[in-house]
């Protein structure tokens, strides 16, 4: 699993890559909590995300709750078809704002 953080325009850009399983999901959750407490506008780049199970989904849920609580914005983009199917089964496609790529996520109306 890799976690990269950078800036683009007025957003924090967070890239999650590789495999997020039950072994490393706690590490991800810790990072997301820390980022969610300091950033109000976050884009999550999932283009390098190969795998995510329920533990990783739980970590993303924690981040979404944190961002919503402070009236912020969280957008995901670049989900592979496999990951998108997992999101849909989990009902996460109804909870998260999901976009095809960085440009569409960045330019979406707030």
């Amino acid at each position: 699993m890799t976690i990269r953080e950078s800036k683009t325009d007025s957003f924090a850009l967070l890239g999650i890559g590789g495999r997020v399983d039950s072994l490393n999901a706690e590490t991800l959750k810790g990072r997301l909590q820390e980022i969610g407490q300091r950033e109000a506008r976050i884009l999550v780049d999932c283009t390098a995300l190969e795998y995510i199970g329920s533990a990783g989904l739980g970590a993303l849920l924690v981040l979404l709750k944190l961002v919503r609580k402070q009236g912020g914005t969280l957008r995901l983009f670049g989900l592979s078809p496999h990951i998108a199917e997992v999101f849909a089964i989990a009902g996460f496609d109804k909870l998260f704002a999901i976009f095809p790529d960085l440009e569409s996520a960045r330019q979406a109306a707030t």
């Binding site: 329920s54 989904l57 739980g58 849920l61 709750k65 919503r68 089964i89 009902g91 109804k94 909870l95």
Partner: peptide, 23 residues
């Protein structure tokens, strides 16, 4: 897990077995 629940009512538990049943 109740995957249709709104965000405030979503809990992480039970999601794993839901995925297994559906996949």
């Amino acid at each position: 897990a109740d995957v249709a629940a709104p965000l405030d009512e979503r809990r992480p538990g039970g999601l794993g077995i839901h995925l297994v049943r559906r996949l």
